[in-house]
Design a protein around this nucleic acid. Structure first.
Lengths: 207, 207
DNA sequence: TCTCCTAGATTGACTGGTCAATCAGCCGGC
DNA sequence: GCCGGCTGATTGACCAGTCAATCTAGGAGA
């Protein structure tokens, strides 16, 4: 089934193999030959399609992160409540993990949370996500549903950080990750954080 | 001033140098010789005091993390509200960063969030912190101040994740990190998350 | 007081192994 | 017989960890 695969397929094959190898061993700990073996192609072919080992990871990250950014941008434009917008964001990330746990593991462990090495390169894109979330919070404040004594950019950090920690918990088996837990976790998280963010009984409504 | 330094000082000197080198270049990207240079000692001396490069990082992590665990354990025993307990936890972590940003950067970037390589080794200790926080939440539920329809172990993840993301934001200059921002961020975070966790108007009060 | 001796501290050149990346050439379709 | 996909042995750089040699403090003995 490989022999007849057109060129583009081989490239994809390498990317998919990389997802699993990176997820299993970590980007730094694995060798390029591991990727080639997993993909069932020769070592050199990896370098035919990619400039370097780094570029393989870059590609995986960018592919998925741009989907996240597109999702947040799109939901931001809709006329729904801030809570609903944040729910969509949380759902996108959590469902990404649900359907492609290995890919998300790689993105979080080797890029997003490895802000020193790889994250550094992608800081602008990562930051863009935080900024968009902050914008949603700010809009919620302007609409009067969110309390105004909380900094949107800080709230964005808590919200994203909470989700990411959730994924970490699943990745490293620290919390239950059965099928039903994903939706439940998302609901609880949005309920709790948006609940804390929402204005009530006059508190936190600085002029 | 070095020439007369007693042996123990040299060991400390190496650890302190490692903090700064790790923070600057990252654990993987730096060489042992960088640590030795920064400490002003010979390469081999690092191996006189430490079994390996890894052990230097282990030591730094364990030193600080055991303080965190001790703090949580102690506050857990006190008879104050769950919110106050969580505030103490957040304060400890944020103040650790305030006073020793480089050390905290290393712990977060190279250990806690690098759950693939180093975090793996320390998962039990890291997990212990999550468990203790979950226990505080569960106690708050039992006391009736926290809503009971939220899983304590999930809430623990959000809470810790939110704090860690805050530190990341400071480490990578994504959010303001002036002196006044630390306390303010902690207050806002505890207010928001505990606010969302606290029971109110009958919602979420399952039998 | 001086000398010798030992143990531990300190030094840094060197070794062994690892791997990313290269490259010279092969193969199969057109 | 040409061209682009494909191969995998080879190269060269890098670096953790080793080790044999040197230094220093201070205690025992004369």
């Amino acid at each position: 089934m490989d022999a007849k695969a057109p060129p583009v397929e081989k490239r994809r094959q390498i990317l998919d193999a990389a997802i699993h190898v990176f997820a299993r061993q970590g980007f730094h700990a694995c060798r390029v030959s591991d990727i080639a073996d997993e993909a069932g192609v020769a070592y050199g072919l990896v370098y035919h399609y990619f400039k370097s080992k780094d570029q393989v990871l870059n590609e995986l990250f960018t592919e998925r992160w741009s989907l996240l950014l597109a999702t947040i941008e799109e939901v931001d434009g809709q006329t729904i409540s801030a809570r609903e917008k944040l729910d969509v964001v949380a759902r996108f990330i959590i469902d990404s993990y649900r359907h492609e746990p290995d890919l998300m593991k790689v993105i979080i462990v080797d890029v997003t949370r490895a802000a020193n090495s790889f994250g550094r390169t992608h800081l602008p894109e990562i930051r863009r996500a935080y900024d968009l979330i902050a914008k949603i919070v700010a809009d919620g404040q302007r609409a009067g549903t969110f309390r105004t004594d909380v900094d949107p950019e800080f709230a964005s950090m808590w919200f994203y950080g909470a989700i990411e920690q959730l994924l970490s918990g699943w990745v490293f088996d620290l919390i239950p990750g059965e099928e039903a837990d994903f939706d439940r976790a998302r609901e609880m998280l949005v309920e709790t954080i948006c609940g804390g963010l929402e204005s009530r009984n006059g508190a936190g409504q600085a002029s």
